[in-house]
Structure formats: C-alpha cells, structure tokens
Design a protein around this nucleic acid. Structure first.
Lengths: 224, 224
DNA sequence: AATCACCTTTGATGATGATCAACAGGGGTT
DNA sequence: AACCCCTGTTGATCATCATCAAAGGTGATT
C-alpha cells in the first residue's frame, strides 16, 4: 500500500484505514476499466501497466484525452455527474487499486492529509488538462510531438525507468488523437526526428538521443 | 449567500458556517483576481461579472483557458502546487466571493454535503477541460465558433439572461486564443455566419438567429 | 512456416487556416 | 468636434497539415 500514490504522507494508522477500503483489480490489455456512461462508484489508482482515456464525440469520433501510468489516478471525471464521461482502456496488462468513492469521502473527513492529497490530485488533473489545451491550441506538429516525447520521458524517469529509452504502448493513431494530429503526421514527424538524430525510432521502441534538441524545438517556434 | 453556487443543497446552519469563512471582493475591469505564480490561498466564486483565465507559455504566448461567469469557480488550479498556474482577469467590473482554502477544507470535513459539492465542482472543471480538448483536437474553425456561441448561449440562459442575444465581453483575439484560432479567422467566421443568417453580428453584440443551424454544423463535419 | 490483420511508412495532392497587409469603425479623451 | 488608439474587417498569398493512396513490416494465429 505504501506506494499507492494518493497515500503519500499518511501516518501508519491512517494508511491502515485506507487499506481497508481499497481493493484491487487486474485488467487485461484491451479491456475497459470503465466506459462512458457507466455509473461512477470509485476512482482508480494505477498500480502497474498503462491506460488510455478517451471520449467519444457525438458522431463516434474518438479523442484520446490522456495516457496514465503507475501512480496516476483514473476516474475523477465521474464525480461531477455520478457517471463516467470517458472510457478507460488498458493498453497493456495492468492492475489498479479500486478506491470506492463514498468511502474515500468518509475517510477523508477523518484524515485531513488524505483529504488534501485527494484535492491535490484533482487539481493536478486540471492543470494537466490545461497544459494540453495550450499544446492543442498553440503548438505546431513538431512541437507537439517533441513535448509528448519529453513528457513521457519525464514520467518514465520518475518511475525509475530509463528516461532515454522506452516502449510506446499506444499506436500512432492514438498519439495523433491525443495531440490533435493525424497518424500520418505523427509517423512523418517521428521519422524526421529520427533522420535528424534527435531520437531513434524502431517501431514502438524510442530512444531519446538529443533531449536538449527536442527542448529547443519547444522554446522557439512559438507565436507572439 | 444562498445563491453562492457551491452552497447548493446546504442546510441553513451549514450555510451559516460557510458564510462565516467567506469574504467578498470587487474587481474592476482589466484587473487581475490573481496571477500565475501567486501563492494559492483561496478559491473564488464569481458573484457578478465576467472573467477570463489564461496561461502564459514559456516564451510569452498567451493562451486563454476559460471564461467564467456568475456562479462559476476560479482558482482550483492552485491547489496542486500551492501556486496559481494561470492568471484570472476581470473582463468587466465584477465581484467574487473569496473562499479561503484552508477553511474550506476544515469546514468540508464537518459538512459532507459541502465536501461533495466541492468535489463536484473540481470534477466539473476536469470534464469542461476535456470537452475543450476535444474541440481543440478535432474540430474545424466553423465548428469551434459554433460550439463556442452555443455554449455561451446556454450559460447565459441558465443565468436568466437571453439565450439568443448577448454581448461578448472578450475580444476576437481572446476568443481565438481560447479556440486555437487566429483573430482574423474568428472575425471571418462570424462574418460568414452573419451572411448565412445563422447569427447577427454587430461588434460585440451577438444575436443567435438559427441555433439549430449552428447545431447542425457540429453534427456533421466531424472526422471518422 | 504461412497467412492474415493491423500498424506503420512514405509519397503526391489539396484544403484549411495562418500570415501579411491595408483600411474602417468606435469609444474615449482632451 | 477632432484626434487617437484599440478592435475589427477584409483581401491575397502561403505554409502546414489532412487526405488519398499504395506498399512494406510485424506479430499473432492456425
């Protein structure tokens, strides 16, 4: 339990209380953790694996709204209307902690540090979404891809994996959907970065060869 | 106090407690409610007026992340790091309720319905942001403008104003920034809608003449 | 090992919206 | 009333990325 993200900073006794309301669940690759329209009952903390969340627009167009890895929280979109508005799908065999929402509210009334931690996670999600809005609203294709790769790299590193070499769990199409680009543009841009020596691309295996070079792409091509 | 959005559904006695921690503040047009980098101490409920929030990217490019009107909450981005990440600016003379965050956490431990209401507002913000991500990631210029106008119309109506006739508080440039478009594109698209009889445009005064027509723009031009 | 489905790459073309530029209109101030 | 600045409109051109199309790779399944 100690590694459960939302439990950071809890006292032993409080951790034990949290432990009692939490269950676990394994999700196989390709399975849904929840779907848009499902009744909201719990939020989920990713223990292992990799997820995507997506929204289906009114006419069936899919838009990926996020990729979640170990330590990240899923499902907070459901609190607002007691119904999940997005789908959550495992992109590899995964395991989550199920945190029943009613119990979480009750417990966080007893444990201020848990309450505060939960609020921070909600707020972090808001900040993350707004960062993506800036990306979608003002960056060009190359900047989006560079930002995406650097973001993934940072998150991998924070989890003890290599920051410079990793496997993409998602397809080019899913990346494109997330970044507001078509899959061909994603593929082309990755090829270009590869040709320029910024990264090495072999299928889904990515090596960051010149992180600074990727950073430089972000710091210049912006509009006034 | 009763109209304070976050207070919906509270008992009289709880409302009184909330009342005791809340203060008010007037903000003149053009003034900041808070700025990026300010220490986070409170969230704000708009009582009257109109705000925009924006994020300044690493090289000074502004991106509007939202427009807030009466009953909407500002500042929840700050919980995550105890620092506001965006600016909030009044677009007309306005008044807000100041809800000191520490007091809110304390009180919401005593008042479950307040706690739940607060969580709903955070979640609603997440859902709103994700809706905007879909707009930015997959809609064309005309669809974005149509969606924007309809969204404004709906929110005006919910507050008792006319849904078919209202004043824009923001400039074309701010609309463009919000929608990921340039101001010229915003202007051109509004002119086109006007020419087609969908709306009437006189400077910042907008009349919705054919709401269904605007809706139809959304329901078709989407990608597979 | 062979087949198949899916993912990816790459090329050619075209549409959308950005950019550059000039001008018009309002609102406020003196 | 005259002026000025800010905001908005409109036109012409151009860059970016979407679209259409074809072919090559990979991994899974039989």
């Amino acid at each position: 339990m100690r590694e459960l993200c939302i439990a950071v900073g809890l006292e032993d006794q409080d951790l034990h209380k949290l432990d009692q309301i939490v269950a676990r669940r394994k999700i196989k690759r390709g399975e849904h953790l929840y779907r848009a329209g499902d009744t909201f009952t719990a939020i989920y903390a990713v223990r292992t694996g990799f997820f995507k969340t997506d929204l289906i627009g009114d006419e069936g167009q899919e838009q990926v709204t996020g990729f979640q890895m170990a330590g990240e929280i899923l499902g907070m979109d459901g609190i607002s209307t007691d119904t999940h508005v997005c789908n959550a799908t495992a992109l590899e065999d995964s395991e989550v902690c199920i945190i029943p929402y009613e119990n979480l509210e009750t417990l966080s009334r007893e444990v201020p540090s848990l309450q505060h931690q939960f609020h921070k996670f909600m707020s972090r999600e808001i900040v993350r979404d707004q960062g993506l809005m800036v990306l979608l609203g003002s960056m060009k294709a190359e900047e989006r891809i560079a930002a995406f790769l650097l973001n993934l790299s940072t998150r991998m590193k924070a989890r003890g994996y290599s920051a410079s070499e990793f496997h993409l769990r998602m397809t080019r199409e899913e990346i494109g959907s997330y970044l507001g680009l078509k899959l061909e543009t994603v593929s082309r841009t990755l090829s270009k970065f590869d040709a320029e020596g910024l990264i090495g691309v072999q299928h889904k295996h990515i090596r960051i060869l010149n992180g600074q070079g990727l950073h430089d792409l972000l710091d210049h091509g912006t509009n006034t």
